[in-house]
Structure formats: structure tokens, C-alpha cells
């Protein structure tokens, strides 16, 4: 996952001329292409191992709320994806020759919020796509259209941060991300039960 993510950043960085005008324009998009694709790789595997070995039923038989299983899986996926992102970030900054000044924490905040939204819905969908014939293909088809607000917010906010815009410009995007995160964590928590039953 990490290697894949780094690879995307590296390949795109040398296809663009360093220091050209477009690099800065394209950088946020490339960063989030790398993040979402590698995140997708991780999410595809959230349930596949347990469904294939049948141990998922062992967990489902446990006397716990199914929502707790959802939250556990989501937190797990989040940690993986966030670590990958944090490791990729320095390479991204170096390869694209970016100057973040004191905006580094803002970028981390955006990554944090967007990743929550991504794994919140992704974990739910991954529990579905694991039962489809074409697992790896189905997840992006389901996830990308629903993820539009998150991707749009993340890319634009990252763009603003790279331009060293003021905090107020990013605030609107943060609102959308927070609204998305809250709405979909709650909804996924409530509907997860329907997804995992036989």
C-alpha cells in the first residue's frame, strides 16, 4: 500500500517538469489520486481474509453490537491509511519542491478529516463488495461517486494550503468534510448490521 502510494507520487512527479507552472496546479490532484487509490487497495482487503476463511461468522456470533465491529474495522483501516499518507507526505513535498511554511499542520488536518470520511464509507462498502463477483472492481465503482464531496474538498483545500491561502479559505472545505464524516459514520454504523447478516 505504502509502496504503491509512493510510486504514484514519484511517477507523476517526474512526468511534470520541476518548477513548471502546472506542477503546483496538479500537485493536490496527484496527491489525492495516490491517497485514494492506495486507500482503495487497503479497503479491498478489510473483510476478504475473514470472509474467505469463514472466521467472520465467529465475530458475528460474538455477543457484541455489530456497530462495534464496524467501528473497529473503520479505525483499523483509518490507522493504516493515515500512516501511509503521513509517510508519503515528505516525499511529496520534496519531489514537488513545495514550500509549506507553517501550513503543515493544516494539511495534516485536511488529510485526517478526509481520510475519516473515506474509510467510514469505504469500510461499509468493502463489507458489501467482498460478496460480489468482481471485488476489486466493484469497490471503486461504488465508492468514488459517493466520495465526490470528500475528494473535491480535499483537493481544493490542499490547493489552498499550497498557495499559502488564509485559514478562512479552507474553513468552508473543513465544514463540508466534518459534515460528511459525521453523517456517514452515523449512517454506516446504523446500516452495517444489514450488510453483514447472511
Amino acid at each position: 500500500m505504502l509502496i504503491f502510494c509512493l510510486l504514484v507520487v514519484v511517477i507523476f512527479s517526474f512526468t511534470f517538469d520541476p518548477g513548471s507552472e502546472y506542477t503546483k496546479e496538479a500537485a493536490p490532484g496527484i496527491l489525492w489520486v495516490a491517497f485514494t487509490f492506495s486507500g482503495m487497495l487497503g479497503l479491498n482487503r478489510t473483510f476478504s481474509h475473514e470472509v474467505d476463511t469463514g472466521s467472520i461468522h465467529g465475530i458475528l456470533l460474538a455477543p457484541i453490537d455489530r456497530g462495534a465491529i464496524y467501528l473497529g474495522k473503520t479505525i483499523g483501516s483509518f490507522i493504516f491509511m493515515f500512516i501511509v499518507e503521513i509517510f508519503t507526505l515528505p516525499f511529496f513535498i520534496v519531489l514537488f519542491d513545495l514550500n509549506l511554511e507553517n501550513h503543515f499542520l493544516q494539511l495534516v488536518t485536511i488529510i485526517f478529516l478526509a481520510t475519516i470520511g473515506f474509510v467510514a464509507v469505504g469500510t461499509l462498502f468493502s463489507a458489501m463488495t467482498v460478496h460480489t463477483k468482481t471485488r476489486e472492481l466493484m469497490l471503486p465503482i461504488l465508492l468514488f461517486p459517493v466520495m465526490i464531496p470528500v475528494i473535491l474538498a480535499a483537493v481544493n483545500a490542499t490547493g489552498s494550503i499550497l498557495n499559502l491561502d488564509e485559514w478562512s479559505k479552507i474553513l468552508g472545505w473543513i465544514r463540508i468534510l466534518v459534515a460528511f464524516d459525521l453523517a456517514f459514520i452515523v449512517l454506516s454504523y446504523l446500516t452495517f448490521d444489514f450488510v453483514v447478516e447472511e
Binding site: G54, S55, H57, G58, L61, I64
Partner: peptide
């Protein structure tokens, strides 16, 4: 969940990791 606390299930699949 409360009912599952009272249950044990043995099936063909072992549910083991």
C-alpha cells in the same frame, strides 16, 4: 447481542484464524 451471549455454534467451518 444478548441472545448471542447464550449461544455456542459448531458448524462445518471452524471460524478460526
Amino acid at each position: 447481542a444478548a441472545f448471542r451471549r447464550k449461544l455456542g455454534l459448531i458448524a462445518h467451518a471452524t471460524f478460526l484464524y
